[in-house]
């Protein structure tokens, strides 16, 4: 098991671990914005930057995806690192001045305002929603669209996503809470000829997707999106009627 130091502290780390994992396990705080333990490291927010000394050379790396090595000396805070983190959060604060998580992080890093003309976005493009949908849910209902200054997260062609199962994992992981979903009791379809009531539905607001909710055969209460139950049932190899009852009625 590799021996290394983080901020001078001697640490023995498990093989294959990242600097961030090891630091956090040892009570050393490194700020992150695009990292989630359940997801593969992404290395996009760059807040977790640290300095590593490998003997032959010293360089700045992102701790979330840098594997620990024998003899590594890691510094999580110095003048450069602090200046870089401050600039990064200032850039994010410029993009999302009203996102609570960004403001909290700015506070924590001692940045009170931005010197650039502000925008009013809420999404910081950390990509957690896209990644959770791919890596954990396996649906790949959403993706990045465009690139550079126009990059955004979107459902295909900015329309209803046929792959979204309405699980809400994206809502759950979003650090700035800019993804929302809600269940409605009386969804309405609008046609040229008139409207039609379709009953319970889950609405994924950002993905322009509405999924009818399956109701419990016994008590009539909504369980979950029908499509979600279909997909999960198929994956788990359950009988078609295995998910007909809500948790309460099953017991």
């Amino acid at each position: 098991m590799p021996q290394l130091t983080i901020d001078g502290k001697q640490i023995t780390a498990p093989v294959g671990a990242t600097i961030l994992q090891v630091a956090r396990e040892n009570g050393i705080d490194i700020p992150t914005f695009c990292h989630h333990e359940a997801l593969e490291p992404w290395g996009a927010c760059r807040l977790c930057i640290v300095e590593v000394d490998e003997g032959s050379r010293t360089r700045l790396v992102t701790s979330c995806n840098f594997p620990v090595k024998e003899g590594l000396a890691v510094t999580t805070k110095n003048k450069s690192i602090i200046a870089i983190r401050k600039m990064i959060i200032e850039l994010l604060l410029t993009r999302c001045p009203n996102a609570q998580a960004v403001r909290q992080m700015a506070d924590k890093l001692g940045v009170t305002g931005t010197r650039f003309p502000i925008e009013n976005e809420f999404c910081i493009l950390c990509g957690m929603c896209v990644r959770v949908c791919k890596e954990i849910v396996g649906a790949q209902a959403i993706s990045f669209a465009s690139r550079g200054g126009n990059k955004k997260v979107a459902s295909p062609f900015f329309k209803r996503s046929g792959d979204c199962i309405g699980c809400g994992a994206c809502v759950y992981v979003c650090p700035t809470q800019c993804i929302t979903m809600n269940d409605v009791t009386e969804a309405t379809d609008v046609y040229a000829e008139g409207t039609e009531q379709v009953g319970y539905a889950r609405v994924m607001n950002n993905w322009r997707t509405r999924l009818p909710l399956k109701v419990c055969k016994s008590c009539g209460n909504p369980i979950a999106p029908e499509f979600q139950l279909q997909v999960l049932g198929k994956k788990a190899g359950l009988a078609p009627d295995a998910l007909d009852l809500c948790q309460g009625c099953k017991e």
Binding site: A141, I142, F144, A145, A154, S155, P156, F157, D163
Partner: peptide, 12 residues
């Protein structure tokens, strides 16, 4: 493949 992958590439 998911349509999101095609869309993503088409706009990238």
């Amino acid at each position: 493949i998911p349509v999101s992958q095609v869309f993503s590439a088409a706009t990238f």
